[in-house]
Amino acid sequence: MSRVALLTYSTKPRGGVVHTLALAEALADQGAEVHVFALGSEGFFRPLKVPFTLFPFTVEGDSLEEKVFACIGAMTAGLAKVAGEFDILHAQDCISARAATQVHPRVVRTVHHVDDFTTPALVDCQRRSIVEPGHVLVVSEHWRRVLLQEYGVAAQVVRNGVDPARIGPVSARRRARLRASVGAGDRFLLLAVGGIEPRKGSKTLFRALGLLRGDKPVLAIVGGHSFRDHEPYRRQALALLPGLGLNAAQDGAQDVVQLGTVSEEQLAAWYRSADALAYPSIEEGFGLAVLEAQVADLPVVASDLPVFREFLTHGRDALLPAVGDPVALAAALEQVMTDPALRATLVAGGRLVVPRFTWAACAARHAEIYRSIR
Rank of each mutant, 00 (worst) to 15 (best):
P47Q: 02
L48P: 00
K49G: 01
K49I: 01
K49D: 03
K49Y: 01
V50R: 03
V50H: 00
P51C: 01
F52G: 04
T53Q: 03
F55V: 00
F55D: 06
P56E: 07
V59D: 10
V59C: 13
E60C: 02
E65H: 08
E66I: 06
E66V: 06
K67H: 09
K67L: 06
F69Y: 13
C71P: 02
I72S: 11
G73K: 05
A74S: 11
T76S: 14
L79C: 10
L79Q: 06
K81E: 14
V82P: 14
A83Q: 03
A83M: 02
G84K: 14
E85I: 09
E85C: 05
F86S: 14
F86V: 15
F86M: 14
I88N: 07
I88D: 10
I88A: 14
Q92N: 15
C94E: 14
I95N: 11
A97W: 07
A99D: 03
A99F: 11
A100Q: 07
T101E: 09
Q102D: 07
V103L: 08
R106S: 06
R106H: 11
V107P: 00
V107I: 08
V107T: 05
V108I: 10
R109E: 01
V111R: 02
H113M: 01
D115S: 12
D116P: 04
T118A: 07
T119V: 08
P120W: 00
A121K: 03
C125A: 07
R128F: 03
V131R: 02
H135L: 13
L137P: 09
V138C: 07
V139M: 04
V139Q: 02
V139A: 04
S140G: 00
R144L: 03
L147V: 08
L148N: 03
Q149W: 06
Q149G: 08
Y151V: 05
Y151D: 11
G152E: 09
V153S: 02
A154F: 11
Q156E: 14
V157I: 13
V158M: 09
N160P: 08
G161W: 13
D163I: 04
A165Y: 06
I167Y: 13
G168C: 07
V170E: 10
S171I: 05
A172H: 11
A172V: 04
A172G: 08
R174L: 02
A176W: 04
A176N: 12
